[in-house]
Design a protein around this nucleic acid. Structure first.
Lengths: 341, 341
DNA sequence: TTGAAAGCGCTAACAC
DNA sequence: GTGTTAGCGCTTTCAA
């Protein structure tokens, strides 16, 4: 029986209420007890401002009520919208959210998965930058349920949620083509990633579909970023002034393309149409606002956390793999508003 | 002695290495042991893929190595840049980061502080939406160290980091005035908050400094958001076409002002200059890019986490209160580039 | 140097 | 309905 030092524990309450610690626990967890006992325990707890020690509870129960979300970069709007959804669902379900930035380092991704063995988190949502064989190995003997946001090879024993960036790119391209654009440049991000290759595939697919030739000179690969997008667009337009539209791998690049066009005195969308991807907050920032393809980052976040919660609730169903459909959002950067200014 | 069920524990390792659990613990924590013992324990641990149970460790040690960051909205770029800094510093210091969105609900803010008593987190960085008397009361008997990002009354017994939005607003206003602007409108966010009142104060201070009258008709208060900023600006310009510049309480509002101006066919910055605040990623998104005042959100995040870590490292110094100086970032929305297009 | 044992705060099985 | 007690996995005295 400790003295009054330190915060109150079940023992403190028990002493004050004149009951055993077991009764304290029962009352506090809403299990049966005589009304008189209930009253005394609750009063003692209230008077002492008792708050159960969550760590002790976790040790006993084997669950921490914590979820981890690990992604490459906290600042990226795409991940921010995932965090937002995850947090919005995890919180009312009684889970805290642990945030982990892997800084796009593969070794760090592996570490997060391995560290599930420290029992500090009940489950993990991981957005890997690239999936290696090592990833698959580590993922398949993770100590806790994991849901991957991204593309996994068929048969990987891990739940996952993926975007469909091929169709997304096709959607944007069809829209440009439908608007009469014929010389469509393509500013892609790094093309050694799965999404990078997929967007490129979508671009070529849509051209083929329309019976247009694929001119490699119209494609530029660059880092993500507004400045990079502007530079790439300048390069494209310098080489080929006949370009009538630019399709960009994300909104930052597209914003850069808009800057470049306006700096050259081109009118958007009349002389140059620009389309981006992600439909982040940035898409609405520019003027004209960006036409963009929503790859469903919020939706992917929502699905991922729901799949994880289902696993945690003992769902022992087979491996799930959901694909989120892209959605084209048309704005002023590709289509002039009805009433011209 | 448990069977092989469940993940390995100190006991499993001890059995395999033929030593006591105490020796296992010592070796694993780098305390002295005979070389032979060290070798056997390490080998057993490696073979079993042992990972210490973090929860048990926390229960014993009284520390979780977790920090909590609670702010009103996960999606707000200002808080995102704080998260980024906090995470960047907490991680190498061996702390995990728990994210909590209060959704701007004061009761939720109080709950986060109170829940520090559950020992689930070693410390808290809180961005309150508004500080009430109740906040001060709850904060002063928090169970763990807390650092507040925001303005606290003098003498509050809590570490804090604040922005200087009065000076920030003055900075932007002086810049507009120096550019020859005389009829400066002001689009403020909700003015029943401390920052709201401060920006308003800065606006009036700068006008007075310049010997200009304060015309209440030039000020509009509105919700944050691009659409709200555009609507407010249209209203202002409808009422007074002589307005030559708009100072906005944040970048979203400023972007809205830019949209409104361009929709009316006004040239920026020649016919209308626009300045924002926060210098978020949005400021670079528009064309022309926004002049904005950086209120140091990244810097505030950095300071807050450092103050918290100092507290946790046993620093029992007095209450600290740091103020971060604002910084004006001039871009095309207030000053035309050298070479006009 | 090492092992036995206590105990962090809690929940739950078991006996009364 | 209530109390006693074991035990979650770990670290750390205290003896040997």
């Amino acid at each position: 029986m400790t003295t009054s030092a330190g915060p109150p524990t079940v023992e403190t309450i028990a002493a004050r209420a004149g009951v055993s610690i077991a009764s304290v626990s029962r009352v506090l967890n809403g299990h049966g007890a005589r009304p008189n006992t209930v009253r005394r325990v609750q009063q003692a707890a209230a008077e002492l401002g008792y708050v159960p020690n969550g760590v002790a509870r976790s040790l006993k129960g084997g669950r921490t009520r914590q979820l981890t979300f690990a992604m490459p970069d906290v600042g990226n709007p795409v991940y921010v919208s995932m965090v937002r959804q995850i947090q919005a669902i995890a919180k009312p379900s009684g889970y805290r959210l642990l945030l982990h930035s892997t800084d796009a380092v593969a070794a760090d991704e592996l570490d997060v998965v391995r560290s599930l063995a420290d029992r500090t988190s009940d489950g993990l949502i991981l957005v890997p930058i690239r999936v290696t064989g090592e990833h698959l190995k580590v993922l398949s003997d993770a100590a806790r349920p994991v849901v991957v946001i991204g593309s996994l090879p068929d048969g990987a024993p891990v739940d996952s949620v993926r975007a469909d960036s091929v169709s997304g790119a096709v959607l944007a391209m069809r829209h440009l083509l439908a608007g009469g654009r014929r010389r469509i440049a393509f500013v892609n991000g790094p093309d050694d990633t799965v999404p990078g290759r997929n967007r490129s595939l979508g671009y070529r697919t849509a051209l083929e579909e329309a019976g247009l030739p694929h001119d490699p000179a119209l494609t530029v690969t660059t880092e993500f970023g507004i400045a990079a997008g502007a530079a790439a667009t300048h390069r494209l337009l310098d080489a080929d002034p006949a370009i009538d539209s630019v399709f960009c791998a994300n909104d930052q690049l597209a914003l850069g393309a808009v800057h470049a066009a306006l700096d050259r005195g081109l009118r958007i969308p009349e002389e140059l149409a620009v389309a981006g991807m992600d439909d982040s907050e940035l898409a609405r920032a520019g003027h004209p606002a960006l036409t963009s393809v929503d790859l469903g980052s919020a939706e992917r976040g929502r699905l991922a956390v729901e799949m994880l919660l289902a696993r945690l609730d003992g769902g022992d169903h087979g491996v799930r793999c959901e694909t989120v459909a892209p959605r084209l959002v048309v704005r002023g950067s590709t289509v002039a508003p009805e009433r011209a200014s």
